[in-house]
């Protein structure tokens, strides 16, 4: 381990130490939630949760389980801090983030506690870069109160099929309307743009549909501008679970497989744009 040259003593001052052989396993998943600068980090024994929010209507969470890291030591029950995500990503890809097989950047991420900077040791090909990023007062993430017990409709799709639809969506439409229903059209994405309207219908027996659990017809509208960042997560993922609860809140969960075949999750919550009467 190139980065294990740090002395044990030095390690003891840190409340959080996490090392990764391949920094891409962290940077890629963080890219999936990069739409605002401020990211709230919360580390527990289970791993790292990174939260980014927009307009109090959208929240994105990336979960990186402890076992993704080669080393994950946490001395407190919970460690929280906030950093500028763009700066962090710039640091994580400081060696250029090459995708050449066999060339990886190793990372050791350390945090000494409240008021201290987040320290990154990055190593590639024997060159070590140390980055210190000032941390900010952690904000409390919004609780969207999205309970699995309140979920009305849920579908799991292979990301490929949804990616195609999202890449073609009419961006002149201000909203994306999602209809989920136990009967036709089952799962429908609609846009209402300058040139007219468009609908993408997925039948429930499609090969792309892994799970279809819809109990009630629901039509909700979401701001396109809010949902747009989620396409970054969609691009990385292999499966996506789309859920809506009784209030019309949307949960998008993306299953992301990293370079080493391990699984991480990215989750987006979005509040509905307005009430729509069922037609």
């Amino acid at each position: 381990m190139p980065l294990s040259t740090q002395s044990q003593q030095e390690d003891q001052q840190y409340v959080l130490v996490a090392t990764l052989d391949n920094v891409r396993n962290l940077s890629n998943i963080l890219k999936a939630i990069t739409f605002k600068d401020h990211a709230i980090f919360n580390a527990t024994q289970n791993g790292l949760k990174v939260t980014v929010e927009d307009s109090k209507c959208l929240q994105a969470n990336a979960f990186i389980q402890a076992d993704i890291f080669q080393e994950f030591v946490i001395k407190e029950d919970s460690v929280g801090f906030q950093v500028n995500l763009t700066v962090l990503l710039d640091c994580l890809t400081i060696f250029g983030g090459s995708t050449v097989p066999g060339v990886t950047t190793a990372l050791r991420m350390c945090y000494s506690g409240y008021g201290f900077p987040l320290t990154l040791f990055l190593e590639e090909g024997g060159v070590v870069t140390v980055c210190k990023i000032n941390t900010q007062e952690p904000e409390e993430p919004i609780d969207f109160d999205f309970c699995s017990t309140n979920v009305t409709n849920k579908v799991i799709l292979q990301s490929d099929s949804l990616r195609e639809a999202f890449s073609e969506l009419d961006m002149t439409s201000e909203i994306l309307q999602i209809t989920m229903s136990p009967s036709e059209p089952f799962f429908r994405l609609s846009t209402f743009g300058n040139s007219g309207n468009a609908h993408y219908d997925y039948p429930k027996d499609s090969d792309m549909m892994e799970l279809f659990q819809c109990t009630k017809t629901q039509t909700n509208r979401y701001k396109m501008s809010l949902l747009k960042p989620s396409t970054k997560a969609l691009a990385l993922s292999c499966k996506v679970s789309v859920r809506t609860d009784s209030r019309g809140f949307l949960s998008l969960q993306y299953l992301v497989r990293n370079d080493d075949g391990q699984i991480c999750f990215v989750e987006y919550y979005c509040s509905p744009d307005e009430e729509v009467n069922d037609e």
Partner: peptide, 20 residues
């Protein structure tokens, strides 16, 4: 007052565009 283009795709995906 709209012209409808419907694309029938693999896996049963149906794309409908109603164009003014």
């Amino acid at each position: 007052s709209q012209l409808t283009f419907t694309l029938h795709c693999k896996h049963g995906l149906l794309k409908t565009h109603n164009l003014s």
